[in-house]
């Protein structure tokens, strides 16, 4: 299903049907998925439609730009680093336009979203909450429902630390798709309270394509931030 389609088209996968049908000078977009359907009238009958996984912070409505992974605790000794894998829920974005000038038409997902708070109500961040297991290698996933975060955690603190949280700024997420949906990230832990996370513009496997992102289609005056400083702890 992920790819570029020329209007008119229809594609089906994993119980999801996405189509654009031409009617006179206009066309109609239809999406049928287990958690909902959507119909939109398009004012054109030619063009390209991009379907790919997007930053999973858009559903059911946008309340945050942060993605929080809450995982099985990982203990690291000072100066060490460890690569781990975690699953995350995929949201599928449908865009119309050209590669450099596109707009978001629809976002849907097979996963049920859940949100949380990282930090305090006064100064913290609302986050899209992902509760997950830690894997040594990429676990098998349904790419329409789950992706894999390849995260390298480095302990730059003087003490041993136990890490069970990683928070990413979704505006800097780079999602790749191919055989799987994937994000490559890094986390450098400075203490039990402070860490820095960043996302690499690097596919974990050869032959993967980078997804169009929802974030650039939003009206933002302030440029994207890199990286994100976690100041409210890396554990429970």
């Amino acid at each position: 299903m992920f790819g570029i389609y020329k209007i008119p088209f229809q594609t089906d996968a994993a119980g999801i049907t996405v189509s654009v049908e031409c009617e006179g000078e206009t066309s109609t977009y239809r999406r049928i998925a287990p958690l909902g359907t959507l119909t939109k009238r398009l004012g054109y009958r030619e063009g390209r439609v991009f379907i790919n996984p997007v930053e999973p912070v858009n559903l059911p409505s946008e309340v945050t730009g942060m993605l929080e992974f809450h995982f099985t605790p990982v203990t690291l000794r000072p100066g060490s680093s460890i690569p781990i894998c975690m699953k995350f829920p995929v949201e599928i974005g449908v865009f119309v336009g050209a590669a450099e000038n596109y707009t978001l038409l629809d976002v849907f997902s097979l996963a049920r979203p859940k949100y949380s708070l990282y930090g305090t109500p006064e100064k913290g961040f609302i986050t899209r909450h992902v509760e997950c297991e830690v894997y040594e290698y990429a676990p098998p996933t349904n790419p329409f429902e789950e992706g894999v975060l390849f995260l390298t955690i480095k302990n730059s603190a003087r003490d041993w630390v136990e890490v069970s949280r990683a928070v990413f700024d979704a505006s800097m997420l780079r999602i790749f798709h191919g055989r799987i949906v994937a994000i490559t990230g890094e986390m450098e832990v400075y203490s039990r309270l402070v860490a820095e996370t960043s996302v690499l513009d690097l596919p974990p496997e050869d032959g993967m394509k980078q997804s169009l992102r929802v974030f650039p289609t939003k009206r933002m005056l302030i440029p994207e931030k890199q990286p994100f400083m976690m100041e409210y702890g890396v554990g429970d």
């Binding site: 559903l59 059911p60 809450h70 049920r112 979203p113 859940k114 949380s116 708070l117 990282y118």
Partner: peptide, 10 residues
Amino acid sequence: DDHPFVLRHP
């Protein structure tokens, strides 16, 4: 638990 905007933490 089912409602997306009922926060997990707190």
